[in-house]
Amino acid sequence: MTKPVHIVVIARGVMLELLRRKDLAVLLIFAVVYLAFVAAARFVGLENPATGTFLMNLSLSLITVLAHLVTLTTAARQLPDEMDKGTIYPLLARPVSRFEILLGKWAACVVAGLLLFGVMISCALLLVPKLEPYEAATLIQLLLLQVPAIALTAAIGIMCSLLLPRLPGLLAAVALVFGSGFASRFAGRLVVPYLLPDPWRLNLVLRYTDGIAPLSLNDFILLFIYGLLWLTILLVFSGALFQRRRL
């Protein structure tokens, strides 16, 4: 029986680590510098709508990539760090299941990724000049679909860290998160790329910045279910891998 309180306690520990690690602060500084550059463009006076759209697209895409990258790298190091440093032993010496530890780690990475995404996208939407009309409903869909997308990215990071050694695991996770969509686009008749989990399928940045109407409710729900289905598969598979692991 999985106890939510255990998951919350584990997740709190990870969040504390993320807050006290300096690499997150460095990332935020880079993001602030970029957004300051965008804000400067606004004040200088941007008149060409195409340039405005380009800036909007670039900003939202960068933010999405950054949020996924941070989520992925954070998730991919959680369990290997615990195992390498031996801190997994006192954790598992409590009445806690391995699956609860895995879920706690995963949940913290998702929350961190969503917070980073939320803060940066709010800044971008406030600062980047909007010279063309954008669909508010598409934006809401974009934001909502990033929840399963980031959750899926975190699950991929954790699964790859359990399947492979540290560096190959991270590279495989990066390839899956950023490459499976690319692979399916060029797959032709090959079926395998379509069977890979693809968080990028849930990314509506281009749809929003191109001013395209929102997805139909059916398509939106299907995409959401696609994300949740893969998420369940990956978490259950990772749980089974972790359960079998000799520590």
Binding site: V5, V9, G13, L16, E17, G86, T87, P95
Partner: peptide, 25 residues
Amino acid sequence: YLPEVALYYPFMKAGELLELYGALG
């Protein structure tokens, strides 16, 4: 349980570490 080797989380304070393990217990 006392493990043979464990490098406890360097980013945590002693009180926070014991709070984590106590809460899980």
